[in-house]
Design a protein around this nucleic acid. Structure first.
Lengths: 167, 167
DNA sequence: AAATAATTCTTTAAGCTTCAAGTAACTTGG
DNA sequence: CCAAGTTACTTGAAGCTTAAAGAATTATTT
């Protein structure tokens, strides 16, 4: 703590350059990889990344999930999911029906076509990811996982603090 | 290498689950932080993240830069930058003029207003980032920087390979 | 039971983003 | 010089994304 001549607390600008550089590097990595995956998905399967991501969520749950669940898991807005699902239903990849127990809720699932196409894409997608991370040793991967988990926790705490929400 | 009964090379599906999980975690971290920064920029300064990012690029170069430079640095498409710049010129934050030596080139710079506003925002932005990464020790930060640098290099190699471009 | 609150989802407007195609200007090889 | 190729940027269409407001339904409170 630094006190000025009138004995009042004064904030000195601290240096947070390292954190800023870390954030920019994190963002660069993600943007780079995301762009690569996006362009491969487009040229190999003529599918967009958001559509692939949504189908990936649905592939994990045979009985389907609600739009809200999708929204939370994908960390995008509700309205966004509404539009995405509409296009996936239109193209026959996703099935949507109103919940029997709660008529506000829409339950969506992959159709047979949707699941088949997703599995085909996912297989290749996984090899792309492996190729992209190919320079990392297994130890690097473990260490990155650990540090990113810590980062995620830290970021979540900060986000809670700013919105005043409970965990 | 695995050979089947007719002595033909066969591809067995290798396990790349670790890399896939790493990628998803990386994406989660970035999305989380990006969302937090986006919402704070909006509520504190009523500015969008892309506008802030573009201004950040321009703040680093007093003499301005071309649209192509911005496009490469931000890793977004040319058309995207055209639109962003148009709105920033409209709002008086950015100045744009045609290069004297090459009339294809547009050089853009921050206006006085743009620079003042950006500096004001950047100062606070830096503290947000520090807060978001607050749980990481200096050693964690260094280690993450190192591993992300390695990741970036690996991803760039993979991207080159797929597009057949020179570094 | 009725009013109130909370939730789930949709809609709308504005802006962001990509891709592909197009225009204008510069560069290069013949 | 000039034709062909390259580069820099813009345009247009489609899709993505958010924030905010609204509609419908369910849950809670009184």
């Amino acid at each position: 703590m630094i006190l000025d001549s009138e004995t009042k607390a004064v904030e000195l600008p601290e240096d947070h350059g390292d954190e800023l550089r870390l954030w920019l590097r994190l963002l660069t990595c993600t943007t780079l990889i995301e762009g690569e995956v996006r362009s491969r998905l487009r040229e190999r399967f003529d599918v967009t990344l958001p559509r692939f991501d949504l189908m990936a969520q649905l592939d994990k749950v045979p009985d389907g999930m609600t739009l809200s669940d999708v929204s939370k898991r994908m960390m995008v807005s509700n309205g966004n999911v509404t539009g995405l699902v509409e296009r996936l239903v239109e193209s026959g990849h996703v099935d949507r029906r109103t919940s029997e127990t709660d008529r506000r809720v829409q339950v969506i699932r992959l159709t047979k076509l949707g699941r088949a196409e997703f599995r085909r894409m996912a297989e290749e997608h996984e090899t792309w990811i492996a190729e992209i991370f190919t320079d990392l040793t297994p130890k690097d991967v473990r260490e990155l996982m650990r540090l990113l988990a810590k980062t995620k926790g830290s970021a979540q705490k900060a986000a809670q603090k700013s919105t005043g929400k409970a965990p």
